[in-house]
Design a protein around this nucleic acid. Structure first.
Lengths: 299, 299
DNA sequence: CAAATAATGAAATAATTATTACATTTGAAA
DNA sequence: TTTCAAATGTAATAATTATTTCATTATTTG
């Protein structure tokens, strides 16, 4: 009882402090660091837990700098010496450890507000698990084959599902190269007029099903295209015009969809196809990467 | 076949191993121990994680025995010396740490190919759990307050993160009504020219960080806006210009991002704000719904 | 209850680990 | 290019930590 109440307080107080914790201070000082100091900072930030166990020489080796640089780093971070820095890192790791303990001990306690936040994450993770356990692998493989041998691939996703469609399109087109996206319905759908049995049409719609999406899929089905839908229930209006379908839970609350589960399904599809198209994809990616590096990417 | 077989085997091997790990060996030897050795054994078994960080004199004090007894204990356990024992304890703790991260994996068996597919879903669920366990609730609350009292809210998200930005924008604008989205950088960013300390700017970028996103956030930071970033590592280039930041794992493989975890974070933000803005939101929604019903929604 | 034996701790010593001093390299400015 | 300051690494030194020795205290056994 008391324990519980106090824990919450202790946590929030501690949490407030954490925004000024070792890691944060290191990250914020990175731009004032020399080259090897930045190396050390990066190593620490990317290996938080194991660094806590290292002595000077081990960390020096791992971060590929001299021992002296480690000491200088510690003093630069305003510690008396390495042992002080190490102590802070160890405390953080211990904290991390005990937090994980609490989280995985199922009956985690948060204060009212925090519990609500945590629940959203936990529910999202559950949605993914649920989607997986309802997944028909046979269907999955078949759809992958159809996508691979398709002449064109259309993705139809309206309104809020448009974001999912955009993401799916962005990567599927990198992998396959013959993809079209239809998210608005002001004539965009014209590109689908000559759809036929060589094409795959993937509709994405949930809950407040978008009329236009439903109609477009019906049209494609009529034209004998290979229709696939990603939707939420068997009672969804797209099901009857789908040759194949995937069910993923998407409802979060009255006004908001959680697209976490369908997104995970899309990840699975893209990864699968990426593996399949390995060689071609590599070429496509190296040229893309070159372009990105030139124009747009911040290292 | 490998995957499937190995998963089970790996587990049982691990279990088998664990039955012969440091802790187990200590426990099994307890009855052959002297009084102070038993004291030490008890202390170690009851404080597994913190013992990993202790040196001889600290452990001696904690277990209330002499330093010599600690050394004798280590040799009694057939280690060359204390450092060897300590190393094993540290390895166990590290293992413990990473095992917790894996805990959400389901233990279903799949065949070769299917295991790969299932792994993607499981990993995605893990990413969400990881994001939650690293979440600083204090920061979360503070950022929510800033969003609520902001004059304008800008969402900056380029390239593949644009999909996330679109989704976020779509709903955040329903909830708040004063949101602007910047996904391309061909003049769109002009709307941000007069950004100031009353505005919140949220940048979303991962891995191959989009230069323009980084620069825009830096600009906003310079103008003293409340800068928030959703990114993947503390070494991300947006961190140093972020007044607040959220870390969510986003890497799936070489060419593909998994946005499942940041999406779950966005869900949490939207739900939180939705609850807060309850009354206003309801009105906004009923009018929206009316519109949807009329034009676009298939029941 | 001795006498022998085992267990323990304090303190000296050995080994390891952190820090400093100094030499070398790197990089920027003239 | 040359010069100088900053950054870095190497190696010597200081500090810390682990181990051993030895004196003392428990514990067992005849």
């Amino acid at each position: 009882m008391e324990e519980k109440g106090n824990r919450k307080n202790a946590d929030s107080i501690k949490k407030g402090k954490e925004m000024n914790d070792v890691y944060d201070r290191i990250a914020k000082k990175m731009d004032k660091m020399s080259k090897s100091q930045r190396k050390i900072a990066e190593y620490i930030l990317n290996n938080k837990d194991s660094v806590a166990f290292m002595n000077v020489s081990k960390l020096a080796k791992e971060a590929d700098v001299s021992e002296a640089s480690i000491i200088r780093f510690a003093t630069f971070m305003e510690y008396k010496g390495y042992p002080q820095l190490q102590k802070e890192l160890q405390e953080k790791t211990r904290e991390h450890l005990s937090m994980k303990e609490r989280l995985t001990n199922s009956y985690t306690e948060y204060n009212d507000d925090d519990a609500g936040i945590a629940k959203i994450f936990n529910d999202d993770a559950d949605r993914i698990q649920k989607t997986l356990s309802g997944l028909d692998f046979q269907t999955f493989h078949t759809v992958m084959e159809k996508i691979i041998s398709a002449r064109r691939i259309f993705i139809v996703a309206g309104r809020s599902a448009a974001a999912l469609g955009t993401f799916f399109y962005y990567y599927l087109n990198i992998v396959m190269g013959n993809v079209e996206l239809i998210t608005s319905f002001n004539g965009d759908e014209e590109i689908m007029h000559n759809v036929n049995e060589e094409d795959v049409v993937i509709a994405i719609t949930f809950k407040m099903y978008t009329r236009k999406t439903v109609e477009l899929l019906a049209y494609a089905f009529e034209k004998n295209a290979i229709t696939v839908s990603i939707t939420d229930f068997m009672t969804s209006p797209v099901i009857k015009n789908s040759k194949y379908y995937f069910l993923t839970e998407a409802q979060l609350n009255t006004y908001l969809d959680s697209f976490v589960a369908p997104l995970s399904l899309i990840n699975a599809i893209l990864t699968y196809l990426g593996k399949y198209k390995n060689k071609e994809l590599e070429e496509r990616l190296t040229s893309l990467e070159a372009m990105w590096n030139e124009f747009d990417v911040f290292q």
